[in-house]
């Protein structure tokens, strides 16, 4: 089992074979559970996109009919646009905020444990509380945010969750605030891998704090950033709970997202084929982004 270096051409073949065996042996315990209980149902649900199924009767092959209905459906396009809007706002803002606070809270500060805990609290606070308090803060007439905006001379501050234009920014704001602590934890773990002597060497060279951040911290965190970026992208495209509690997709359809459409069409309305077709679209988008990021990361690793 032990692999020694350097290898001759002959042993390299054997090494590859034994590597395959060793690699799989590591992956197998997780993969078994994963394959049966996640991969199979996922493939089944994607196959449903070509069927007509109400969860009870025998499924009927309909070819591309579900997709045809989808591209002519106004609600689908609205939800797709809203989801993309949400992701474009949510991903970079959360990423920057999480990274910034992780770096800040990785320092020797008095009370650092308290601050870390406090920043993680939004993630474990009841969603109803989150929705009510954010809606209160952003209340068009009485909310402190708009009172502040009026005080600094903005006569017509946004209507936030009661306005079709501003509801999505309000949701993004609340969601960045909620997820910040979650991704900060991941960055904190990543920061522990950076050897301290790198910073010391840089300091000897006279690098400023900002230079150290860009030249040491950011590159060293690349694998973590890759992980955070992908998880953030995926979770943004799948966003459900927060929107459901904060605006229920409203007013009108202004914050309706794809997951809500998938849920409504599938389990609520019993149109599982159509629901799967929508998830297929979501899946393809997210997968494309992921693969692009994956390739980009692999290139930068070399």
């Amino acid at each position: 089992m032990t692999v020694t270096l350097p290898a001759s051409p002959r042993t390299q073949v054997g090494r590859r074979r034994s590597n395959t065996w060793v690699g799989w042996s590591f992956i197998l315990p997780n993969f078994l559970g994963f394959a049966v209980l996640t991969l199979v149902p996922v493939i089944a649900s994607l196959a449903l996109a070509f069927l007509d199924w109400d969860s009870y009767s025998t499924p009927r092959w309909v070819g591309l009919a579900n997709f045809e209905r989808m591209i002519h459906n106004d609600t689908f396009w609205t939800a797709l646009r809203n989801t993309a809007y949400y992701a474009v706002g949510h991903v970079p803002l959360t990423l920057c905020a999480a990274l910034g606070f992780a770096v800040l809270l990785n320092q020797r500060l008095r009370g650092v444990r308290f601050f870390r805990t406090a920043l993680f609290f939004p993630y474990i606070t009841s969603l109803v509380a989150v929705a009510v308090v954010w809606n209160m803060l952003l209340s068009p007439e009485l909310g402190p945010v708009n009172q502040f905006l009026r005080a600094i001379g903005i006569d017509h501050p946004p209507g936030w969750t009661t306005s079709t234009t501003w509801a999505m920014p309000a949701v993004i704001l609340a969601s960045v605030w909620r997820d910040l602590g979650y991704y900060m934890i991941l960055y904190l773990a990543g920061l522990q891998t950076i050897p301290g002597e790198l910073y010391e060497a840089a300091q000897v060279d006279g690098a400023s704090g900002w230079q150290r951040f860009w030249n040491i911290t950011v590159p060293s965190l690349r694998p973590t950033t890759f992980f955070v970026l992908i998880m953030l992208t995926i979770s943004s495209f799948k966003v459900f709970d927060l929107v459901q509690v904060m605006t229920e997709g409203g007013p009108g359809r202004s914050t309706l997202v794809l997951s809500q459409v998938i849920f409504r069409e599938g389990i609520t309305q019993g149109r599982f084929g159509y629901s799967s077709a929508v998830s297929m679209v979501l899946f393809v988008i997210v997968l494309t982004i992921t693969v692009v990021q994956f390739q980009w990361q692999r290139r930068s690793e070399r």
């Binding site: 209507g159 009661t162 306005s163 079709t164 997709g249 409203g250 007013p251 009108g252 359809r253």
Partner: peptide
């Protein structure tokens, strides 16, 4: 959905 828009004055 349309009820929301009427009641919030968006429409």
């Amino acid at each position: 959905e349309e009820h929301e828009l009427i009641m919030t004055g968006e429409k």
